[in-house]
Design a protein around this nucleic acid. Structure first.
Lengths: 225, 225
DNA sequence: GCTACTTTTCTTACATGTATAAAAACTTAC
DNA sequence: GTAAGTTTTTATACATGTAAGAAAAGTAGC
């Protein structure tokens, strides 16, 4: 039975590496060589430790990437100065800021699906979104639902784009989409056939904000279901 | 130059396994034991072959999962009978049908981010969405953009929910969200603090259709950007 | 000093996806 | 028949995340 009446220093073997050092080194590897070069073994080697030692400071690789995302958000997220007066514009500004920061993270795919709040650094922006929605007439519950709807849209946009971008760089096989479009039957799917040549350029367009505006319009319109 | 005037058989070593057999066996494993039990080694064993033999019929595991998703969609997707008369309702019905089928696929997370058209079986539904949007007054380009916006929202909703569901079943650690909410400062984030106890129940609600309706309202409102 | 306890680190081992190259099983040309 | 060519299958090997347990390095009480 250990009975530590005098809470002196810390007992046990002293740590030689810290979570901060892990994150710092991981960030360096990612920025220098890309996210796919970040392995637990390499990270351990560069820190001068062993892979399993990392696991005492980080639950698993996914948590490490989450910490990396948080680190990135804390450095990059800038609150709009001055905040827009119109509540709708505040929602737009906050969501766009979050989207912008996330879109810059290549390793995001493995983490983003984690939860709906990805970073403490982003909480202020979430608050802005909920605030803008309530000031526009939504109840608190409705505003939270509205935020979550915006989050789904944002996460989906980022994930789909990030994955297809990664695929383009890793892979030279024709996309599934190309195969599908090549075999379209104009009789059965007339609009898709007509749209086929326009599809790829339309996909490349950055329409996040446009979609966000539409979504916001709908959220604030109070149409009866 | 081989000139096969008599369309004999095919040249080369005859195949002992087929893509269909692979998919069939994979489907059985997934339905019987869950998607996480589907490994290339086990699949090969159950077919009576070797892991690498699979790779002649399937590019990699991701393609296998994509084929599995397609298979699932082909079996489950049912066209609404009769199709709703109102174009807006047709969009709703088609998107909801896709959402429903995808939400039933546990292995979807690894595949869904693949592209914006995940299954040939779903093309008819995509056509319905684009058609409903054009009939509501959008140009073809706008309708395709609108479809993609709907797709981002749908994919995001599915991915976020699927991942958090998986986490709950695999994991007993407190969620990141719980940790974040436990440390909220009501002075700085008043709305989030107030919403904190309501957050988890709100997350559990199925609000896909509600969000979709809002999005659709916005897409059809033609608000100037 | 020594023993008990705690915390961190290290060693070893395994499951997994898949790259690579060799072998096998065919057809066709002679 | 044999040789060449083609396609599928198999054997082997590697990189990766990480589980399990032993070892190390400290503190506290004696």
């Amino acid at each position: 039975m250990p009975r530590p009446p005098a809470p002196r220093k810390t007992t046990g073997r002293p740590a030689r590496i810290s979570r901060e050092e892990i994150i710092r080194t991981a960030r360096r590897i990612v920025t220098e060589d890309g996210a796919d070069r970040l392995t637990m073994r390499r990270l351990a080697t560069e820190i001068g430790s062993t892979p399993m030692a990392l696991y005492h400071h980080v639950r698993d690789k996914e948590e490490l990437l989450l910490l990396l995302l948080d680190d990135h958000a804390a450095r990059s997220l800038r609150r709009p100065e001055p905040p827009p007066a119109d509540p709708r514009d505040r929602v737009l500004a906050a969501a766009t800021a979050i989207h912008e920061v996330l879109a810059a993270c290549p390793w995001i795919v493995e983490v983003l699906t984690a939860d709906d709040l990805m970073s403490t650094s982003a909480l202020w922006f979430v608050e802005q979104i909920v605030a803008g929605l309530t000031e526009s007439g939504l109840s608190l519950d409705e505003a939270v639902r509205g935020y979550r709807t915006i989050w789904y849209y944002t996460a989906g946009e980022i994930l789909v784009h990030a994955t297809s971008a990664r695929r383009r760089s890793t892979d030279d096989r024709p996309t599934y989409r190309d195969q599908v479009f090549a075999a379209l039957d104009p009789a059965e799917l007339p609009l898709l056939s007509r749209a086929a040549p326009r599809w790829t350029p339309l996909t490349a367009e950055d329409t996040y904000e446009q979609g966000l505006r539409a979504l916001l319009t709908g959220l604030l319109s109070h149409t009866p279901a």
